[in-house]
């Protein structure tokens, strides 16, 4: 199959992130390829989640947190002056470790939640179409089509997580950030979410933080290894897991620490 030349979707230049005096991400520079899945791996506390949260300006919502450096998305630095974090987050979707459906909303309204804050809000009929499309993309439509008006809290954990993915997809983000999206799911739900991630690459740039190296190997095209807040190595996933160039990567992957 002919693969078009990969282009950079997000260019990260000398990114530093802090929690108060703690230097959580240290001078990370990396280009993330368009319409691929990039996995971010590393031991607990290595700064991989913080790195992810810098890409949609969620890091700064924590009291005492700050960011230095540049994150260039479509030619614009998302930390540039005059750029609102709210606008950035509308373009960059995010799904968290634990499912976070809004408990007061129905399944339909959950998926449509992101549409409500768009500048051009779709009408009710368009919303229904968008909701259906998003739920189909998240492989949840068949399970919930008959109960769209019921509370989202009635779904199982795996369904709730796919609902959150649908909610993130509803606004058609160019980039989707996944922060250990299967950490709280059972194996079957995990498999469904992984298949979903694999299919999303055709039109979304996905960055997934994971603790699970098998998962990184299964779903990603490229893998980045973090250690102590630094980016140690980034390479095509296959190369990363067979012949990493840094010996620290190798010892982590072979299970010598972490």
């Amino acid at each position: 199959m002919a693969v078009p030349a990969p282009s950079t979707r997000i260019a990260i230049e000398r990114l530093d992130a802090f929690f108060g005096v703690v230097h959580a991400v240290r001078g990370v520079s990396v280009d993330l390829t368009d319409r691929t899945v990039t996995a971010v791996i590393g031991p607990s506390g290595c700064g991989k989640s913080t790195f992810l949260r810098c890409l949609n300006r969620m890091h700064e919502t924590v009291p005492g947190a700050r960011v230095n450096g540049r994150v260039i998305l479509d030619g614009h630095d998302i930390y540039g002056s005059g750029i609102s974090p709210v606008a950035v987050r509308r373009q960059v979707g995010m799904v968290f470790q634990r499912p976070t459906p809004f408990p007061t909303m129905s399944i339909r309204d959950n998926v449509a939640a992101g549409l409500a804050v768009l500048d051009r809000r779709p009408n009710a009929r368009q919303t229904d179409e968008i909701v259906e499309r998003a739920l189909r993309r998240a492989a949840l439509w068949d399970e919930v089509r008959d109960r769209l008006k019921t509370s989202a809290t009635g779904l199982s954990g795996g369904q709730q997580q796919r609902l959150c993915i649908a909610r993130a997809l509803a606004t058609d983000p160019e980039v989707l950030l996944l922060d250990e999206p299967t950490a709280s799911l059972d194996p079957i739900s995990t498999q469904k979410v992984e298949e979903l991630i694999y299919e999303l690459r055709t039109d979304v740039t996905v960055i997934i933080v994971t603790h699970n190296m098998q998962q990184a190997a299964r779903v990603s095209d490229r893998t980045a290894f973090f250690l102590g807040g630094e980016l140690i190595e980034v390479a095509p996933t296959e190369k990363m897991f067979t012949s990493p160039s840094d010996e620290r990567t190798e010892s982590y992957i072979t299970g010598r620490f972490g």
Partner: peptide, 21 residues
């Protein structure tokens, strides 16, 4: 839970809108 607040912020809700809705 703070995770709910974060989910709304990540969807592009402003702070006051997150608080209210």
């Amino acid at each position: 839970p703070i995770s709910l607040r974060e989910a709304a912020l990540a969807l592009g809700y402003s702070r006051w809108r997150t608080s209210l809705s």
